[in-house]
Amino acid sequence: MFRNSLRLFPFLFRVSVKHSELGAARPFSKSTYFQNMKIGTHDGVFHCDEVLACFMLKQLPEYKDAEIIRTRDMQKLKTCDIVVDVGAEFNHETKRYDHHQRELSSAGLIYTYYGEQVIQTIAPKECPLLPDDLRIIYKKVYENFIEEIDAIDNGVPMTDQEPKYKIRTHISNRVARLNPEWNSNLSINLDEIFKKAMKLVSEEFLYVTNNFISVWLPARDYVKSSLENRFEVHDSGQILEFKERFPWKEHLFDLETEMGIGHEIKFVLFNDKPSSWRVQAVPVSPYSFVTRKPLHKDWWGVRDEMLSEVAGIKNCIFCHSTGFIGGNTSRQGALEMAVASLKAD
């Protein structure tokens, strides 16, 4: 499956780890001024991958003011400082990135060698990403954005089976729609439309990257802290506590593996709103409703006073009919629901 291309194509991460050794970008100082830099790509119909590749390059200091030369004329391409998606050559040392790999598009190649630098330029200047966090964000942006563009550009299907419906609103399709139709006025300036396409992909790329930096990463730190303090919640170490509601499942699975904890966490407590706590069973995978251990089966589908009576726990609110989540008006009550469910057969 293409979605495992990072595992099947370890070249991508080996390159990224050593990008500074390979000279992924020329040394830059504020006193350096890069004059007349040129980024080369093909002319004619454009695609999402080279549009995104050009946008990423223009985030870097040396290419920030570079002119984009759209041509297939090899003599003109030879004058360019870096070339993407054209030229029939892939050579990092000479900065030629016409892709031949089934797994990567030209955007994937540029991201391979320059992605970490691009992300660091986007990150808040007052709080640059630490090396470990940068690596994590680099991987997540690939998996959640770049990989899709690589796959579409290389014609890699999402599944081995015929999909039941088609998605026509993805970023690659929206970029493609900017190209003039076959029967339209051919005097349209494609270079100007190319700039519009760059703006379109920039909004998507910046949203994804900033979301991982500003929203996703802090949540990861919160989950990690909760895992480290789990024995303060209950001596079993199988119950986590969060003070608020936020996306935690993906982080939990990643961190359990990184911290060597295994799959011992069974329940999560979090404050949903004033006088409302939730106890949620941990699923067997981040997107599954099948749980490692559900709430007590005798409670499924029972509510309010009746649930409190059946459970022998004050102030119960509800238990879902499949036992994956329940509620109580207090933290103590939610904790008691988790502990009782841990002990249940």
Rank of each mutant, 00 (worst) to 15 (best):
P274S: 03
L307R: 05
E116D: 06
I239E: 04
F212Y: 07
E143H: 02
E250P: 10
A340W: 01
Q238I: 03
L269V: 07
G260E: 06
R292W: 09
L57D: 01
H263A: 12
H42N: 04
Y114P: 00
K95Y: 12
R96M: 10
K58C: 03
K58Q: 12
V290A: 10
E309Q: 14
W299Q: 10
L178T: 01
S276V: 01
R245G: 02
E89I: 15
D345H: 13
K95R: 15
L200A: 02
S202Q: 11
D235Y: 10
L217Q: 04
S275E: 12
G44S: 07
C319S: 14
S187R: 13
F324T: 12
V175I: 03
N328G: 01
V279I: 11
V175S: 00
K297S: 15
E147Q: 12
M337N: 05
F270H: 15
V310S: 08
N211C: 04
P124R: 12
N4G: 06
I82T: 08
N183W: 14
K164D: 09
R292Y: 08
L190P: 00
S184E: 14
M259P: 00
C48K: 09
K30H: 14
A344Q: 11
R7T: 06
P131V: 03
L12S: 09
F28D: 09
K266R: 13
S5N: 15
K224Y: 03
Q59L: 13
N144G: 09
S225K: 14
L269G: 00
S236R: 07
V156T: 14
N271I: 02
E204S: 07
V15T: 09
N328K: 07
S226G: 03
S288D: 11
I146H: 03
I265F: 09
N185Q: 08
